[in-house]
Amino acid sequence: MQDEENLVGRARQGDQKAFAQLYEEHFNKIYRYVVVRIGDKTEAEDMTQQVFLNALQSIASFKWQGTPFAAWLFRIAHNQVVDYFRKNQKQPVALFDESLVESDSNPQRMAENSLDIEQLLSATERLTAAQREVISLRFAGGLAIAEVAKIMGKSQGAVKALQHSAIIALRKTLLSENKVLVAEDNEKD
């Protein structure tokens, strides 16, 4: 945390290398979050770029108050997602673009992942907005509960409750649609 505070401080003072490091550390997570929230690859790419350009423009206004830099970035991304839905008057999750699946040398695994992604995005349509936000930040964004709570302006207890209810709802939806959950355990070969 101390290192990040130092890095952010340097970026605020115009240190390009420091800001570049922050960019590299957070780019993929922001992209995943936006993709899972909106389900549109082209839009997600543009929005991810815009998140970092906005961050660059307003870094001087960032005040270190113990909140991780990621929380500030995800807040910018969250606001852009909200604007996107407002402007386009779309449902939060649209049909998924199959080309999003990362290239993989194992065709069987690719097929399983592709199916899972479609199932996930379809299932998240039935979640509440708050549950969807928790799933996007926690799993796609890879944030800890404390960080999710700060971004959403809720207590950690409230976010844990949302996480619990969202996972239950996702499981029910997936099972009701006779989907098989393909979860690869973390066992090392």
Partner: peptide, 13 residues
């Protein structure tokens, strides 16, 4: 379920 969700959302640009 959570693990499947986590794996499904591990998309790379």
């Amino acid at each position: 379920t959570a693990l499947a969700v986590n794996q499904a959302s591990a998309i790379q640009p």
